[in-house]
Amino acid sequence: MILNNQLIVENIQYNYAKKNILQDVSFTCSNGIIALLGNNGAGKSTIMKIIAGMMKPAKGKVLLNNQSILTSQNYPIHKIGYLPQDFDIYGNVSGYDFLSYVYDIKKLKQPSKKQVLDELIAKFNLEEVIYKKFSSYSGGYKRRLGIAQAVLGEPKLIIIDEPSVGLDPIQRIEFRSYLAEISRTAITLISTHIIEDVELYSDEILILREQHIQFQGSVEQLIQLSTPHIYSANVQVDELIAFKKKVRTIEEKRISDTLIKVKFINNQGETFGNKEKEISLENAYVYFQNK
């Protein structure tokens, strides 16, 4: 039986150098992939680091299954997995020694460390490199080892900061399928500014904007929200610049040598263009950031 976990983030406020980075950030989520979206500098990594216990909020609390994780005597590393944006370990350490270290430091209770590690290594296809030095790993193997250490011990919450940065398209696909698998039994909180990462796999989206969580819901809900406001028009190439001055463009696509399809936000009741029917998450997200 898969237990449903619950993460409650309540009124988090974080200031840096007298600047308000996060203001009353609150959300609740359960098992699945929760994608935290926001522009660069919006404070995504700050939220992730606060939940990972590495930054102290000015106020607010974080509860995992109704237990405060920021105020308890010891941060529950055995219940939480963390993969930072710049995952790196000592170059001369082998992947196996690193996983062994994480197993011990998490004080895991499973009977056989070797069995647990062997299963994990097989699950993430690390057999080929696991006894080699970390410095010899390719970007894809490094990321696989990173996620393997994060899921070691079957944590209830997995925090992954910018999961697909530095991965090639094939590695991204592979990485997304790993995320989909682990998120069935754990809350998998990922922060990203790459919309493509979340479109297929995320169960819920959080949009961080202007220090607040301004949207929480599914991909479909975000698209529905933006549908009435996104229009498109076919514009001659030589008229494009003038057209773009009149509207807030969210996507351009060349459809012939002389025509470009422009999707734009119709906030002020412009009379030109038609309501767009094919709206992607990226369109909806750009609309939301610009509305």
């Binding site: 990972a52 216990g53 590495m54 005597q73 010891n74 941060y75 529950p76 590393i77 963390y82 930072p84 710049d86 995952f87 790196d88 370990i89 000592y90 994480v102 430091i105 998490k106």
Partner: peptide, 15 residues
């Protein structure tokens, strides 16, 4: 402190 290794090391220090 190269390539921010300390972030993960800090995470694994529970106290």
């Amino acid at each position: 402190y190269t390539k921010k290794k300390y972030e993960l090391l800090t995470f694994y220090n529970a106290s």
